[in-house]
Design a protein around this nucleic acid. Structure first.
Lengths: 274, 274
DNA sequence: TTGCTCCTCACGTCACGTGAGGTGGC
DNA sequence: TTGCTCCTCACGTCACGTGAGGTGGC
C-alpha cells in the first residue's frame, strides 16, 4: 500500500490531482484511514492511474474518461470515442490555424509598411507597374462610399488576395459626387462571384507618388503628380490607381495621419515636343 | 444614445458580455442612469466595441485586450503582441496536432486489427514475407523482459515506425531463461541511436500462423506450425518472427485473451525427399 | 521543538452563460 | 394586467493549483 505521496511519485500525478480524482470518483484510494483521513493506494490502482493519465494527455475530459474507464478496458471498444474526440480536436486546430493565418497576414502587412516607410522618399517616382489581375466591383458615387464595398470584396475574395487593396479611377478630373471607380483586390486567379468582374491590367510605365495622410488630402498629392506630368510633357492614361498600403486596419481604424496611399498614373502618349 | 439591447444588436456582443466588459472596465457605457441603473452607449463606443470583438476573435485574453486598447490605436504598434500571441497559438496547434496524430495512429491500428480478425482463418498459411528494415535491440534473457525494451525502442524510433512491433527469435528451441532475441520496429529508413542496430530482412517464403490469446500460450501455436513444417518435409530458418498485431495498447493493457500475434517462420532448405 | 506528510476548506482561474427575483414604463 | 427591457446577485463551467490552518508521528 502506498501513501498518496508515494503514489503520486509512482504515477506522476500530483497529490492535488489524486485528491481531486478521488473526489470526482474517478480514482478512489484502496482504503482511507478513518482516524486520520489518510488515503492509501495499492499496486492494482497504478494501471488505472496510468490509463487515466494517458487519456488526459490526449485531452479527454474527466467526464469522458470516467465513462471510458467505467465501461471499457480495450482500445478496440473505444474507437468511436477516439474518432469523435479526434474530430473535435481537428475542428479546434482548424480554427486556431485560421487565427494564425490572420495574425501572420497582419504582421506581414505591417512589415511591408515599415519597409515602405524606410525606403520611400515621398517624391514622384517613375517606375514600371507589373501586370496584375484584379477582382473588382465597379461603382458610381462618392469615393468615401467605398468602405462597405471593400468589406464585401475582401470577404468574397478571401485568401485568394495577394496584395494590397486598390482603387481604379476612371474620371479624368476630380469628381465629388458622381465618380466612376472600381474597388479592387489583386488575386492570383480568376474568381466568379456576383457583382465581381475580373480586370487584367497590363504592365505600364507610370509616375507614382506615395501619399501620407488622410484620404481627404489626396488632392494635394494628385496636384504634385499632375504637375510632374506637365513638366515632362506627357499625359496620364486612365484609369489611375490608388494602392492602399496603409489604411483602416483589420483591427484598428488607425490614425488617418499615418495612412499610406500610393497614387499611380500610367504614362500615356508623349506630346509632340516643340 | 443606445440602450444595452440596441448596442448589443449593433455590435453583436451579448448583453451579458457588455455588462461583463463594463464590470471589467474594458468597455464602460457612456452614462448610467442612477435611478434605474440602465446603461447607455453612444455611437463613439461602437468602434471600441468592434476593436475588442476583433481582438477576441483572435483569442486575445481580456487582460491583453485591456492593455492593447489602453495604449494603442494602430496595428503597427502592436506587432509584438501579435507575434507573441502567434507563437503561443502555434505552440498550442503543434500540441493538438501531436494528439491528433496519436489518436489517428490508434484508430488506424484498431482498423487493421479488425480487418485481420475478419479475414484470417487462424490456420497455418504459406506466404511471402516482404523485405523489411528493422530498428532492433538484441537481448538475452526472458522473453517477458521485452516490455521496457519495446517502450524505449518506440520512443527512439518515434514516428519513423511504419508497422507493427516485432520480435526476432534466434534460438532453435524454446528457452525459458537465456533466450536470444531482438525487439524490433519496422522503420522507413536507417536510424542511428545508442543500443539500436539496423537489420534488413530480405523477402522470404514462410509458414505463418495467427495466434489469438496470451503470450504464455504461444507454445501451442508454435507446435502447430512446426508440425506443418514436418508434414511438408521442410525446415524452418532462423530467426523466426513474432508480429504483435494486438498486444498491450497505448492506452489500455487490454485483455490478453484478445491479443493477436502472428508467428512467421521462413522456409529453409527442403529436405531431400525419399 | 522542528520538519515532514497528510488532511480539509475556501478561493482563484477564464470569459462569460444561466437563472432567479425584481423594477419601470408602455 | 401582460409583455418587454433592463437591473443585480449568485452560481456554474473545467481541471485542477494555491494557500491557510491544522494534525499526527518520528
Amino acid at each position: 500500500m502506498y501513501s498518496i505521496g508515494e503514489f503520486s511519485q509512482i504515477t506522476g500525478l500530483s497529490i492535488k490531482t489524486l485528491r481531486f480524482y478521488h473526489e470526482r470518483g474517478l480514482l478512489a484510494p484502496t482504503c482511507v484511514d478513518d482516524q486520520t483521513g489518510y488515503r492509501y493506494y495499492d499496486a492494482a490502482k497504478i494501471d488505472r492511474a496510468r490509463v487515466i493519465a494517458e487519456l488526459r494527455k490526449l485531452e479527454f475530459s474527466l467526464d469522458d474518461i470516467a465513462a471510458i474507464v467505467r465501461d471499457h478496458d480495450d482500445e478496440s471498444d473505444i474507437v468511436e470515442y477516439l474518432r469523435r474526440h479526434s474530430r473535435e480536436i481537428a475542428v479546434r486546430v482548424q480554427a486556431q490555424k485560421q487565427i494564425l493565418s490572420v495574425l501572420q497576414t497582419i504582421i506581414r502587412h505591417q512589415e511591408e509598411i515599415r519597409h515602405i516607410m524606410q525606403t520611400s522618399h515621398f517624391e514622384v517616382t517613375e517606375k514600371s507597374l507589373p501586370a496584375v489581375l484584379l477582382a473588382c466591383r465597379r461603382m458610381r458615387g462618392k469615393y468615401s462610399d467605398c468602405g462597405p464595398a471593400f468589406g464585401q470584396l475582401c470577404r468574397k475574395v478571401g485568401w485568394h488576395m495577394v496584395g494590397k487593396p486598390m482603387m481604379l479611377l476612371y474620371d479624368s478630373e476630380y469628381k465629388e459626387d458622381d465618380a466612376d471607380f472600381a474597388v479592387c483586390a489583386p488575386v492570383r486567379k480568376a474568381i466568379r462571384a456576383a457583382d465581381i468582374e475580373m480586370i487584367e491590367l497590363p504592365t505600364a510605365r507610370a509616375l507614382t507618388l506615395l501619399h501620407q495622410g488622410p484620404y481627404a488630402e489626396l488632392g494635394r498629392s494628385y496636384a504634385v503628380l499632375l504637375a510632374e506630368f506637365q513638366r515632362l510633357g506627357v499625359t496620364p492614361a486612365l484609369p489611375s490607381r490608388e494602392v492602399y498600403h496603409k489604411g483602416p486596419g483589420m483591427i484598428f481604424r488607425g490614425n488617418p495621419q499615418r495612412y499610406l496611399t500610393e497614387i499611380q498614373m500610367a504614362i500615356g502618349e508623349a506630346e509632340a515636343k516643340p
